[in-house]
Design a protein around this nucleic acid. Structure first.
Length: 943
DNA sequence: ACTCTGCATAGAGGA
């Protein structure tokens, strides 16, 4: 049976004499998980309840009586239950702390001193914090030295030749397994890496030759293998283990067993230990997937023919090794060490393992980081520590980022905790696909096609990396795939029809998965990059930069004696500050104040002064918008490079996009000669961008960025300019912690003199602007011109105010709708909104000039069913950054105005500041009146 | 309780 619970109290370890001699044991007091469904009818053999995710109980069993027994006696979890971990599992017991989760598989009931407990059996595995998904390659680092694991996490994988070459050899290996021609594969794969190779100063030819040498050994070995009929291969398998809390991607699986490729040389008889550990971890996960594995294979591609003959007599680059139960248990204990360390928020010192620092490549880095952060380390410390406040800042943000990582892991857990229907309801998956075909592409990859059976929405979009599966993303056949085409959702009428919709999905993947389901792929990439940006900012940043960031020295400015903007003082000051900033400048741009134009004007001025500029923002949309404005100032397209993915960059900016393929020197020249480089902050944190350096980094929508997110961009430049509005939406983060406040907001408050607020808005009629201005901007926001102040629908062609009913004659209207009692939708509001839109249409307004904003996605869908397609209906969050002639807001709330969505007044600010000429608020006056801010909004709207 | 954008994936190595 499987025991699962939370550790309470201390763990006691002792040695006892048994019939089998002296044995160690650890007693752990567990509060068993609340009893859920206790029946786990299937016994899959190796692992108890492998793949059986239906159960939530603390104890599940393959034999009915004990399951119900255990469930009954321990339900409610009032009294802790003692679980005895025998033998080497005591090592995992020692890392436990109260509050941690523990799982014991194949446990047995244990009566001791009249109490019922549980104990490990020889078939048991013990898993600490199973919800923390440890990456297999992380365990590989950890076994070498726990501190190496930590350092790798902080600084990321660097751009260097061995890494790029290793990646290439792996890719070619995968291609060979898929039956591709060696030379064709090498040529294409090397070409794809042109940008990275160029940055490293490597030529395509020499790299190809290098890869060829490594690949030749593999090819020869594969040829032997292919002779055997039963040699079943599969390349690159994504493996996720619910039971063991592991994830990773095996290079290949042969006859169900893991094969790992290493581009190094190994002339010893045995594989390197850490390589064995890696293979054993994959074996463990494969075991959960129903296999029973006792061998692993390591391929060392530098073992050339000469080496073999002269030194070892080995005839092959491959080393097979057998994996006993002891090794599998050992690697799981390593995994437990990492999970426990992460759960307790600890920092490894290196003393946990027995690695020898004198042989370590990372020794210098290790000592420097240890010194600067004043961390204990086996290698010792070099240099002085950074100030205490900086170390505390580092610790705080490190923890906050790790909290985000746990949220990503929680997304993984939903893959097995939620049913397919729940996933679909959460918009996290498209289920019930009808598989059409898998077609092999020329490059050895596959094109997968499927048809949608339902029109459900999801957050999956074209270009996204997804988990494509046969319907079972964890235990079934699953692979990473890219969405190439995602046909639009069919109109609602089609939903009634039971037949398949005529909406096709096209994917590309390495393996021909018979795809029936797509899930969002939870990536840790963002958290990884936030961590390295934090590290770089604090450990590599200059003293001056950190004085400014830590509010120890106010930013300084050079006086600029030039006028950049004639008719707008605040904009002109903003450009002068941006251009003259020695450290940083802060531009606060409320809605419609010409923020984008100001950015563009500042960038042109900087470029004219011979400076190299990085233009960044959190979203691709913001980057492209700003870039568009830059080009409109007359900057030559040849001076601009847009770095980003093909699907991320807006189509009309595609011609500026930096290609990564081709000739290494040419690609690097394009990047390095550009006067302006534009990329999202996530891309700024990438290996390629981190090689760059700039005079100025200009970050738009900076109030939507976390501190470390902002660092990713500003780390690359001498000076920086942040542009944003902290009274609009804050950063999107999962966990509630310091990441929710932007660096922009902190600095605006710390250095009022370094900032400028753009105070003249070019969007809203004065009547519309009045409330947001007093409520959110101290009354400082005003219309830029009399024309703006007085703009009404009458100015538009074909629209006449006379034909509108009197209730819509004012620029701001409140429509009181009692609403229904649904929580996230309101059909009454939706139908009233449809009527309003009809009324506007009758008065001559085009539907495309009306926008409808609702707080919830569900209400957005509800409204979409009632109004013409041309009307833009969306959530507040998605409306940020755009505007419409007429905006209708649906509030949904009835009765009480409670819920997090209403608590953040920045959201209502965004909603109210989208219209130019008319704003209609639709909601329940009684509910809105219960909150002071909404009450003031009401009296403004009902004037 | 709700809102939801980014990222190619992972990739190497010595006494």
């Amino acid at each position: 049976m499987k025991v699962r619970g939370t550790v309470v109290g201390e763990v006691t370890t002792r040695t006892v004499s048994t019939s089998a001699g002296e044995r160690d044991l650890a007693e752990v007091a567990l509060r068993l998980r609340e009893e859920g469904v206790s029946d786990s009818a299937t016994d899959s053999g190796v692992l108890d309840s492998a793949g059986d995710s239906a159960t939530d109980s603390g104890v599940t069993s393959s034999t009915d009586d004990s399951a119900t027994d255990a469930g009954r006696s321990d339900s409610a979890g009032a009294t802790p239950t003692t679980v005895t971990l025998w033998g080497k599992w005591t090592e995992s017991a020692e890392v436990l702390e109260p509050g941690m989760e523990l799982v014991v598989t194949e446990a047995e009931r244990d009566e001791y001193r009249g109490e019922t407990g549980y104990a490990t059996t020889p078939a048991s595995y013990v898993v600490v914090e199973p919800a923390y998904l440890v990456d297999v390659t992380d365990v590989r680092n950890w076994v070498e030295c726990p501190r190496l694991y930590y350092l790798n996490k902080l600084s990321g994988v660097p751009l260097n030749y061995p890494v790029v070459k290793g990646t290439l050899v792996h890719e070619v290996f995968g291609d060979l397994l898929r039956g591709r021609d060696l030379e064709a594969s090498i040529e294409e794969r090397v070409e794809e890496r042109a940008l990275e190779l160029g940055l490293l100063g490597e030529s395509a030819e020499s790299t190809a030759e290098d890869v060829r040498q490594n690949a030749a050994a593999i090819e020869g070995w594969l040829e032997q293998g292919r002779l055997s009929e039963d040699d079943e291969w599969r390349s690159e398998q994504l493996l996720i283990s619910e039971t063991f809390g592991l994830k990773g991607r095996a290079d290949a699986i042969r006859r169900g067993a893991p094969v790992e490729l290493k581009t190094g040389k190994n002339l010893k008889k045995e594989p390197r230990f850490k390589d064995k550990v890696q293979a054993a971890l994959y074996a463990l996960v494969l075991e959960e997937h129903g296999g029973s594995i006792d061998t692993g294979t390591l391929l060392y591609t530098k073992n050339s023919a000469l080496d073999r003959n002269e030194e070892t007599g080995d005839l092959t680059p491959a080393k097979d090794f057998s994996m006993g139960q002891g090794l599998l248990e050992y690697v799981l204990r390593l995994r437990n060490e990492i999970a426990a360390m992460e759960a307790s928020g600890g920092v490894p010192t290196g003393k946990e393992g027995n690695a020898k620092c004198e042989y370590c490549f990372e020794r210098d880095t290790c000592m420097v980081v240890s010194g600067r952060l004043d961390q204990e380390s086996k290698a010792g410390q070099i240099g002085g520590a950074i100030p205490v406040e900086e170390r505390e800042h580092f610790d705080r943000f490190y923890r906050a980022i790790e909290e985000e990582r746990r949220e990503v892991h929680r997304e993984y857990a939903k893959l097995w905790e939620q049913s397919a229907e729940e996933r679909a309801d959460d918009d996290r998956a498209i289920v019930d696909l009808e598989f059409i075909e898998a077609r092999e592409l020329s490059g050895g990859r596959w094109e997968l096609r499927a048809r949608r059976r339902s029109a459900a929405t999801s957050k999956l979009r074209e270009g996204d990396l997804v988990l494509a599966s046969d319907g079972e993303p964890v235990v079934g056949d699953a692979e990473l795939a890219r969405i190439e085409r995602l046909d639009g959702v069919a109109p609602p009428a089609a939903e009634a029809d039971d037949g398949p919709l005529d909406a096709e999905i096209v994917l590309t993947a390495d393996e021909p998965v018979e795809v029936e389901r797509l899930d969002v792929y939870p990536s840790e990439l963002t958290t990884d990059r936030l961590l390295t940006a934090l590290h770089d900012a604090l450990l590599k940043g200059t003293e001056r930069r950190k004085d400014v960031l830590f509010e120890r020295a106010a930013p300084e400015f050079d006086a600029i004696d030039e006028t950049f903007v004639d008719n707008n003082d605040a904009q002109d000051v903003a450009v002068r500050k941006a251009v003259g900033a020695r450290d940083c400048a802060l531009i606060h741009g409320p809605p419609g104040t010409g923020k984008t134009y100001t950015i563009a004007r500042a960038i042109r001025a900087m470029v004219e002064r011979g400076e190299r500029v990085l233009l960044s923002a959190f979203t691709n949309r913001a980057v492209d918008n700003a870039l568009e404005a830059v080009l409109e100032t007359g900057i030559e397209p040849e001076d601009v490079v847009r770095v980003g993915t093909e699907s991320g960059v807006r189509e009309d900016m595609g011609h500026l996009r930096l290609e990564r393929e081709g000739d290494p020197d040419a690609r690097v020249a394009e990047l390095q000669s550009a006067r302006i480089v534009a990329a999202t902050t996530a891309t700024c944190g990438s290996r390629v961008m981190k090689e760059g350096s700039f005079d100025v980094a200009l970050v738009d929508e900076a109030a939507q960025l976390t501190e470390p997110g902002t660092y990713a961009a500003i780390n690359l430049a001498e000076r920086f300019v942040l542009v944003g509005d902290h009274h609009q939406l804050p950063p999107v983060v999962q966990a509630e912690n310091e990441l929710a406040e932007s660096l922009f907001e902190r600095l605006v408050e710390a250095y009022p003199d370094a900032g400028v607020m753009l105070d003249r808005q070019y969007r809203m009629n004065q009547r519309i602007q009045a409330f947001p201005s007093t409520e959110f901007y101290d009354g400082r926001l005003r219309p830029a011109t009399p024309d703006v102040a007085g703009r009404t629908l009458d100015d538009l062609d074909d629209v006449s105010l006379e034909s509108l009913p009197s209730e819509l004659a004012d620029q701001v209207t409140f429509v009181d709708v009692p609403g229904d009692d649904e929580r996230y939708t309101d059909a009454v509001e939706a139908s009233r909104i449809a009527d309003l839109i009809d009324t506007y249409a009758d008065a001559g307004l085009a539907p495309s000039e009306i926008g409808v904003i609702a707080p919830f996605r569900a209400q957005v869908s509800e409204i979409e069913r009632h109004v013409p397609d041309a009307v833009a209906v969306d959530t507040v969050d998605r409306f940020q950054g755009s505007s419409q002639e007429v905006i209708v807001v649906s509030f949904v709330a009835s009765g009480e105005l409670d819920g997090p969505i209403f608590e953040d007044y920045r959201r209502i600010n965004v909603a109210l500041t989208r219209p130019k000429r008319a704003l209609v608020l639709v909601g329940d006056a009684e509910a809105l009146g219960t909150d002071p801010v909404y009450a003031r909004m009401l009296s403004w709207a009902r004037r």
